[in-house]
Write a protein that binds this DNA or RNA. Structure first.
Lengths: 112, 112
DNA sequence: CCGATATTTCTATAACTATCGAATTATAGA
DNA sequence: TCTATAATTCGATAGTTATAGAAATATCGG
């Protein structure tokens, strides 16, 4: 992962409504949440929500799929892990440290 | 950790020079790096670097200490871990997942 | 105290970002 | 096709952030 895409991801998350939406999506898992439901839960007008979701999608943090009239957003865990890995890379001056940052939905988990 | 301080931390990191500076500090460990050395390594004018370091400090991501004429900045690992924990909280819809995000310098490590 | 070094604060300007109503596009059911 | 629902794009405005030179502050050695 390179600096530029990490910056886009961090910028995307650095906003009240987007951070809140993203966390709901992270917690929702693979099923995702439709745009309208996010707008309602966060009490943000649909056009604003759409703007924010577009930023998250553009940053690669979420994916979208149409399902009938709804557009369902879900968190992309790989992107999140990439960002966290970038931040902790070679941390602590070479001292070994427990920086295993990993969060995967069931389907992407390596069978142990 | 609450939303507001996480947003400040993410905003602080969502900028080319600050992200680069922060990573150098993360890698430098507890010894830290003086402001001038960061400005030089990143090829940023001192006044701009100072502005950016102030943002990182304000977000709680770095600490500063004076040492003779220099001001030495170091990464605050606890803050970084707080941010990552906030992002991954309750991830993956309740499915247990390896989201142990932790990065500590030697001195803050719990003796196992 | 003086000159040199290290860094910050001030100031102005340019560029970017958020907001949200209105208009538009896409889908579904009768 | 008509109507309702779901979401996005457009457009104007307000607010925030980055930039970097010049001036100010702090520290050190002699």
């Amino acid at each position: 992962m390179e600096a530029d895409s990490v910056i886009r991801a961090l910028s995307a998350l650095a906003q009240e409504h987007r951070l809140a939406a993203y966390r709901l999506l992270v917690q929702a898992g693979e099923g995702g949440i439709p745009a309208g439901a996010l707008a309602e839960q966060l009490d943000v007008p649909p056009s604003s929500m759409s703007f924010h979701l577009a930023q998250l999608a553009n940053a690669g943090l979420v994916t979208q799929r149409r399902e009938s009239r709804s557009i369902i957003y879900s968190a992309d865990y790989a992107a999140m892990n990439g960002v966290m890995g970038y931040l902790t890379e070679n941390c602590c001056g070479g001292v070994p440290c427990g920086d295993s940052t990993a969060c995967l939905p069931d389907s992407q988990r390596k069978s142990a």
